[in-house]
Design a protein around this nucleic acid. Structure first.
Lengths: 189, 189
DNA sequence: CTTTAGAAAGTGAACGTTCATTCACTAATG
DNA sequence: CATTAGTGAATGAACGTTCACTTTCTAAAG
């Protein structure tokens, strides 16, 4: 039996890049096929449709990221360490794979994230949970945990956005200490 | 001569709403015409193309917002007051017209904002300028003004995003004090 | 070791649909 | 009556998807 693993990987990486560069709707199957060096029909051996391709790329990776965040958070004893671990995870993901980060956290938010069923792990909910726990334990200023989590997430995501636009030169990991410190100033006791 | 002002306003509001609800690419001229109660050809009496419609809605309103932010900022003596005035402006815009806010600040970022020429007023640059000035005057902790501005902008925009998703009940104006306080904790001296 | 059958992957022209745009025509207004 | 707004069927291009066909690979049979 013929092995299509390499082809599928090529489809995944190429379409991820084009989806981020031009947007999902603006990327045609012909664009993907041409950039990946395959025929137009080949994608359909691996995905039922363009929609399924876009959704698979999002849901698989977003679920993995959310699980990883939850795993890292559980490893840490205190709330500050939990939040620091999560922020460093975002920074590392950005530096390692800015295209994937952009697709998951900056682009796909509208259109894909609305399809996430409530049962699946969700990065934002992990952060809310951590902050809620931190408030219970008195490690975080009492208040609305969703509001606090939104602010922390906002700092991280807008930093990534500015990095994408080339507004600063440091890597996200270089700035991780700064981001953690700022986030803690926002939510910390 | 016939007056098309009302029709144009109807096109503007209807397409703005649909662009935010479904995305620009996913909104067809038929969608707009049908929802606005006009014929398909009518839009072309007011805009040369769908692209021009999307761009006009963005650039006109984004420039107006950026100018307003700059005007408000100039009215204030201190850096804290400047930032507070700008954040309150974002909150008011959101509460008054969440659809316009979403189009300008949450959706159109990718696709439209890249077309902004550097000479035009740009909300982010106004904020960077204010923070840069605040650092010079010793009212803001010394550092990279772009990084500080990104964090403040991130707090505001992610709060708006969470509000769009219905993650909390308060209006943005209700939370303005909280947002200003958090932002100042991030950048303030 | 060689042959061969079957299964899955790869191909790309063709298909049907959808879409943005056009245009000849009509309606309104000054 | 001239000018601009409004109309909606028609147009052609672009797109996602299909499918009959080819290629490649595995493994069982000889």
């Amino acid at each position: 039996m013929r092995d299509g693993t390499k082809t599928k990987e090529s489809i995944d990486r190429t379409s991820l890049r084009l989806f981020v560069e031009k947007g999902v709707a603006e990327t045609t199957i012909r664009d993907i096929a041409s950039a990946a060096g395959i025929a137009e029909g080949t994608m359909y051996r691996h995905y039922a449709s363009k929609d399924e391709l876009a959704w698979s790329l999002f849901s698989k990776n977003f679920t993995a990221l959310s699980r990883e965040l939850d795993r890292l958070q559980k490893e840490q004893p205190g709330t500050r360490e939990k939040i620091e671990a999560m922020i460093r995870c975002f920074c590392t993901l950005f530096d390692d794979d800015p295209i994937l980060f952009s697709y998951l956290c900056l682009h796909a938010l509208h259109g894909q994230i609305g399809k996430m069923t409530p049962d699946r792990p969700h990065a934002m909910e992990v952060l809310i949970k951590v902050i809620d726990g931190g408030m219970d334990r008195g490690e975080i200023t009492k208040g609305n945990p969703t509001v606090a989590a939104s602010m922390v997430m906002g700092i991280v995501l807008q930093m990534a956005t500015s990095k994408v636009y080339g507004r600063f030169d440091e890597s996200m990991t270089d700035l991780a200490d700064t981001i953690v410190a700022a986030s803690w100033r926002v939510v910390g006791e």
